[in-house]
Amino acid sequence: MNKTNPKKAVKELTMMLMYLTRFNESDRFGTNPDITWKGYDFNVINELDEEDYIRQGSHRSKSVAITEEGIKLSQSLLNKYNISDWE
């Protein structure tokens, strides 16, 4: 099995943690998305935002919205790392 480099691993693991700790607040971002706290490395958060896996809205906000693409990525990463999703 090929090893993942540390930078990529941090990004993937951050996305998975954001996905696994998500919650939903109706209409906060206008489309009723799943959101999560952004207490992670800001450089990683900015990269995930630029790649449209999450949306920060305001950089001052303490939470981010996970996009549909972010959900798909997270689910594939859970499969890659052999982690179960919530039932």
Rank of each mutant, 00 (worst) to 15 (best):
M1E: 01
M1W: 07
P6I: 04
A9Y: 08
V10M: 12
L13K: 13
T14W: 00
M15K: 08
M16S: 04
L17M: 08
M18F: 00
M18T: 00
L20W: 02
L20Y: 04
T21M: 02
R22A: 03
F23R: 00
F23L: 01
N24E: 14
S26N: 04
G30V: 01
N32G: 01
N32Q: 03
N32L: 03
N32R: 13
P33K: 10
P33Y: 05
T36P: 12
W37L: 07
K38I: 01
K38L: 11
G39N: 06
G39S: 15
D41G: 05
D41N: 13
F42V: 15
V44D: 01
V44K: 04
I45T: 08
I45D: 06
E47R: 13
E47P: 06
D49T: 11
E50Q: 10
D52M: 13
D52I: 13
R55Y: 05
G57S: 01
S61A: 14
K62Q: 12
S63M: 15
V64T: 11
A65M: 03
A65L: 05
I66D: 02
T67H: 14
E68S: 09
E68T: 15
E69P: 08
E69L: 15
G70M: 12
I71V: 09
L73K: 09
L73C: 01
S74R: 01
S76M: 07
L77H: 00
S84Q: 13
E87D: 11
